[in-house]
Nucleic acid binder design. Sequence first.
DNA 1: TCATTAACACGGG
DNA 2: CCCGTGTTAATGA
Length: 209
Amino acid sequence: MIDILRENFSQLLEDELLVEISKVSIHMRVNGGDILMESGSTVTHMPILLSGAIKIFRLDDDYREQILYFLENGDTCALTLNCCLGKAKSEIKAQAEIDSEIILIPAEQMEVFLKYPSWSRFVFASFNTRLVELLEVVDSLAFMNLDERLFNYLRDKVLINSNQLIEVTHNQIAQEMNTSRVVISRVLKILEMENKIKLHRNKIEVLAI
DNA sequence: TCATTAACACGGG
DNA sequence: CCCGTGTTAATGA
């Protein structure tokens, strides 16, 4: 595992720390669709994404979900980070979007590693990027129409899968964006008429990014 | 005005 | 037949 860590983080974290991480952490591969964390579950490990993509959702009391953002290479989830430091329960749900490779660091190591300056920098930087991303989510929910939000969602999927053809049903989108299928079907139809996408059964082809 | 819910028809696998 | 899709009507915020 130390080789993988050096390959990905040698510029970011000092070697001594990488060695320590490799001793206590778990290297894990997950398949697309796997649920990595449920809302309400206790957080025992902090994940760092090596490859692939993870979807992060917020859930309301009735377990309806709203997608927040995608994690990609090198990202860690600051919400989890927060939970690890505070030993709190998860406020979010995480699901692998595609096959992914992650490193899991035990939560109790978080504070121990703070003696390394590079680790503090890494943690603060992670908080920062997550905070910026969350602000974009707030902007999106507060100021953008559904058609813009939907197109952004499709564009993200295209970038993550490196494929113009997205395999997803209207119902799945509706659930992830916390709205109804009727609305998604209608807006998708409008996007199709604007020549931005082309609709197929179980698939959506994104024409303009 | 726009989302949601229910209901229905159509059609591909 | 089952499920995804496209649409409409009624209702409510």
